[in-house]
């Protein structure tokens, strides 16, 4: 099953707006929101939830005050400063290592599994969508990303979909690592700013570890044409296909306010044509071949 994952490094470059626009153009795809930490794709897709399940993350320590003798073993062993002088566990600090649980001489510490969020299979006007909501201040976002991607894959195979379109998270840490492993190709959305190119370079370095093909498009390119050229040069140097440029267009924000994709808002515009051309290039790219052959020639260097 082919899967394109849309990433950026820097936040706010237009990943979700473009993912939604691609969803409107794709025929027979499954959508997947892998930005579980601050998921926004559902605001444009208005998914109707068909199936919902709890996401069980790690466990956390819980001290039973009736059994605790205040010996202090747990405080001494905890490297995360999660246990107070009053022998209460700070759930935000607790790493879930369970060392206190195993060493407590009174067996006074329980280790209940935590419900860290929930995930959903939904219907949208553009096809099925797998998405999730990570609980506030929770850990294990990488684990939840892996879960929604796995579910999206199963669903896509079951429904005979052509591909999966995955909206990825910003950054280069654990949720991003979980988002890009095994992707057919990455679409990197970059804005032409000093921070945009800096962050792109770091996520490209990460992607190079995973030997995944990459493609890049510059959003809001007219804010800085010189920087746009620098980004495209960098892309070519790293063996990343240049898909094209999208102009800075307030229509993205206006359509977002109405809960629509760019292609459902107002009259056809030049911006739409730019996005359509980019989508056509993605679909035609050798790494997206339908034979399931990994395109080793186009992996990010």
């Amino acid at each position: 099953m082919r899967e394109i994952v849309i990433i950026s490094g820097k936040g706010g470059t237009g990943k979700t707006s473009l993912t939604a626009a691609f969803a409107a153009l794709a025929k027979n795809s499954v959508l997947c929101d892998a930005d579980v930490d601050a998921a926004d794709l559902h605001l444009l897709m208005q998914p109707v939830i068909q199936q919902m399940a709890d996401f069980m993350g790690g466990s956390k320590a819980l001290i039973n005050p009736d059994l605790c003798t205040s010996c202090g073993t747990c405080i001494d062993l905890c490297r995360f400063g999660a246990i107070s002088e009053q022998f209460q566990v700070n759930a935000i600090r607790c790493e879930g290592c369970g060392v206190c649980v195993d060493f407590c001489p009174e067996a006074a510490i329980g280790f209940p599994v935590q419900r860290c969020g929930e995930w959903y299979i939904s219907d949208t006007r553009f096809g099925p969508m797998v998405h999730a909501r990570l609980g506030i201040a929770e850990e294990n976002s990488g684990k939840l990303v892996s879960l929604v991607r796995k579910e999206a894959r199963q669903l896509a195979e079951k429904r005979g979909a052509d591909m999966i379109i995955t909206d990825g998270p910003p950054g280069i840490g654990c949720p991003v690592i979980a988002s890009i492993g095994g992707a057919t190709a990455l679409v990197i959305v970059v804005e032409p700013t000093v921070s945009g190119i800096h962050d792109m370079e770091r996520v490209v370095d990460l992607a190079a570890h995973f030997k995944v093909p990459g493609m890049v498009c510059v959003n809001k390119f007219d804010l800085n044409v010189e920087m746009t050229e620098a980004i495209e040069k960098l892309a070519i140097r790293r063996n990343i296909a240049v898909l094209g440029r999208v102009v800075f267009d307030p229509a993205f924000t206006r359509s977002m306010v109405e809960g629509k994709t760019l292609f459902e808002y107002g009259e056809p515009t030049a911006t739409r044509q730019q996005v359509l051309d980019i989508w056509t290039q993605i679909i035609k790219s050798p790494s997206m071949n339908t034979l399931g052959i990994v395109d080793l020639k186009s992996t990010i260097q």
């Binding site: 936040g11 706010g12 930490d37 601050a38 935000i92 990570l134 506030i136 201040a137 929770e138 850990e139 976002s141 998270p169 910003p170 950054g171 840490g173």
Partner: peptide, 10 residues
């Protein structure tokens, strides 16, 4: 701070 609402932001 970083974006998001999970452990790095906390």
């Amino acid at each position: 701070a970083p974006p998001g609402t999970s452990c790095p932001v906390i």
